[in-house]
């Protein structure tokens, strides 16, 4: 059955009654027929209004989610990119610092080991030397043979001490260079938080029937802290270094 046939079935009798009343000049019958037609249309109008309201609500929800998405796309994604680039820079610097220190320490340790080896050989040669002469002459020869070994030991010990101290200091600096992990970790964590929010926002967009996600802006709670300063991202007045911090605190009477 076509749509028009359905309409004809629904409204045909009313329209007939209406034209009958018109032809017969029956005012009461005319208005009764008109009222009947209006009542028949009412449920359909209500359904249409309901549908319109629903569409409007969805459009508003979509608008709210899309504004948040636009904000993420315009501001927070570029910020996150800068943050991650900063992470690369910090890890790169820390890796190079560590490698430099390791490369400096290697030859120092090798030199100490090599010179210690030479000394061990000299001592062994001294021990293995064939006995020469006897009595006092033997003692004098023995001392003569031992003197170069003593001189070598005298030269070796201060150098070995200096090299060991240098290696010890390099190791302490290697340790300190690992501090980047704390800072980069904090930055990466904030980017993970943003990705999580992006995921939630996109999920809301694809499922508009659900509740709108409540948004939290990164680093909004100052008590929680903002994380390391990222050039180009961190806003507001920041201390440029420890000297700046010390000056600020001494200004406060600390």
């Amino acid at each position: 059955m076509s749509n028009f046939q359905v309409l004809k079935l629904e409204y045909g009798a009313c329209v007939d009654a209406l034209s009958e009343a018109l032809r017969g000049g029956d005012e009461t019958a005319f208005f009764t027929a008109v009222d009947h037609i209006v009542r028949m249309r009412e449920p359909q109008t209500l359904t249409e209004i309901r549908k319109l309201t629903g569409d409007l609500q969805k459009a508003l929800e979509r608008f709210s989610i899309e504004s948040r998405l636009a904000d993420i796309a315009e501001n927070e994604i570029p910020d996150a990119k800068t943050r991650l680039s900063h992470v690369i820079k910090m890890t790169d610097e820390a890796a190079h610092r560590t490698l430099d220190l390791v490369e400096q320490s290697g030859p120092l340790a090798e030199r100490t080991a090599r010179e210690a080896g030479v000394l061990i050989d000299s001592l062994q040669t001294y021990r293995d030397r064939p006995p020469v002469g006897s009595g006092f002459e033997s003692v004098v020869r023995s001392i003569d043979a031992f003197l170069p070994v003593v001189r070598a030991v005298e030269a070796f010990l201060p150098a070995a001490r200096a090299d060991s101290e240098r290696i010890r200091k390099n190791l302490a600096d290697v340790l300190l260079a690992q501090g980047y992990q704390d800072l980069t970790g904090q930055i990466i964590r904030s980017v993970i938080k943003l990705v999580g929010e992006l995921e939630e926002t996109l999920a809301s967009l694809t499922n508009l029937s659900g509740d709108i996600v409540e948004h939290t802006t990164l680093g909004e709670n100052p008590d929680q802290g903002h994380g390391p300063v990222v050039p180009g991202v961190t806003r507001g007045e920041v201390a440029s270094g420890q000297t700046d911090v010390d000056e600020l605190l001494s200004g406060l009477g600390m």
């Binding site: 100052p222 903002h226 300063v229 420890q242 911090v245 600020l248």
Partner: peptide, 25 residues
């Protein structure tokens, strides 16, 4: 800490820290 905003340093001082060192240190 890595927190280096001036307002935070002041806040920490008011909370009663005896010293404030920023990372990397």
């Amino acid at each position: 800490t890595a927190e280096a905003k001036r307002e935070q340093i002041i806040e920490a001082a008011q909370a009663g820290v005896n010293g404030y060192v920023i990372k990397p240190f």
